[in-house]
Amino acid sequence: MNFKLMTYNVQDLFLQTAFPLKPEYLHTLSDEHWGMLGHSDQELKPLSKLKALAQIILNEDPDCVCLCEVGGLTALSNFNEFFLSGAYVAYLIPGNSDRGIESGFLLKKSLPFTAELQTNRHWPVPFQYLHEEDPEAYSVTALMAEAFNLGDSDRRRLSRDIPVLHLYDPQGICILSVMLAHLKSGYDPQGFDAGGQKRRAAEVKALIAIYQKLKAEKSNDHPVIVAGDFNGNASRDDTSAEFLPLYKATDLEDALYLAGIPRYERHTHMTFYGRTASAKQLDYIFLSLSLHQRLIPEETYVYRYVYDEDGSEMLAPFSFRDRDLLPSDHYPVVCVVEL
């Protein structure tokens, strides 16, 4: 059978309403009315954006959706029930995010599979920031760091999690494992880790170790998909230094690369520096070796947002204001493999 997977950073999918709500009443609410249903300490994602996210999933009809930046299991379950007619089963275990943005899965109920979710939130991620490696050279940063709780360098954990969803056929055989990564972003307000590179590099090593452990437990040819928001250039083209070990130590390959998608069509995120736009691929679906030849290239792509009126592709945003009108600041990636 063909298995369609989507990975999507849905940007702050907070959906915990403070009051009971029947899904059939959603069409009567405006974004303003919807916003009033949230808790005082957590703003709801706008209703119009939630509807747009749901429409993309309904139109694309993936068997499995890997989602980053979900506001917990309640939010994911509500999204499924309110906007997807309960067509999926939600899987999410809270990770280590200090913003409450978790990584979760939606698996289609109609599939002939059972599933088991495994967390790796306690996986060790030992590393040192530059001021810890050389406190004299970075003395000012080291002094500033005393005011923050950065934790013991050898006791650090993943900034979020790398959960694994195992799929089993009716005979109880594990036919596929899907790992979901949301690696450290470049956001560094305190200035301890420029571009988040030190922590992200450590998390890449953890991802590799988790992948290798999984293969050792199953088999070397066990099908594995590693999807999610890598927050950097993990592609084969001009690979960022922190991702080079991914290619040296594993057989993982980017599905878009395998499908022959040109680099300029692989971008999944846009940001802006003054009047200059920057388009990058941050989101990936990596396939283990046993899946390389089972990828269906013509059904592998980056989804582009479309206009409601005629379904034509939207122009890329030209500013933060343009981007804020989209359902998310990321584009989803889709691939189909034969199981």
Rank of each mutant, 00 (worst) to 15 (best):
L207Q: 08
E24F: 08
H33F: 10
T114I: 12
H131Q: 08
N233H: 12
G95E: 10
K45Q: 11
N231V: 05
L246C: 07
E217A: 05
R156F: 09
G228K: 03
D41H: 07
A147R: 13
T276N: 12
T276R: 13
Y211G: 03
S185C: 04
Y8K: 03
V333W: 02
G196I: 09
A18H: 07
S328N: 00
E265A: 13
Y129S: 02
L58V: 06
F82L: 12
L50E: 07
K248A: 13
D310V: 01
E253K: 15
M270G: 12
I101G: 08
L29N: 07
T141R: 12
Y247D: 05
K51C: 08
P262G: 01
H330L: 04
F105Y: 03
V334N: 05
V302A: 03
K109V: 09
L92E: 02
A277G: 13
E146W: 01
I173L: 14
T239H: 00
V70D: 01
L44M: 04
E309T: 04
L50V: 03
S77I: 08
E132S: 03
L47T: 05
L37S: 06
H122G: 05
L21I: 05
F230M: 06
D154K: 12
H182G: 03
E309L: 02
E32C: 05
V140M: 10
T271V: 04
S219M: 12
G151W: 00
A18M: 08
I285H: 08
D193Q: 12
D152H: 14
P46A: 00
K218D: 01
F83N: 06
L58A: 11
A279L: 15
L58G: 09
N9G: 04
Q197Y: 15
E309Y: 04
S312N: 07
T7P: 00
S110T: 13
L295R: 03
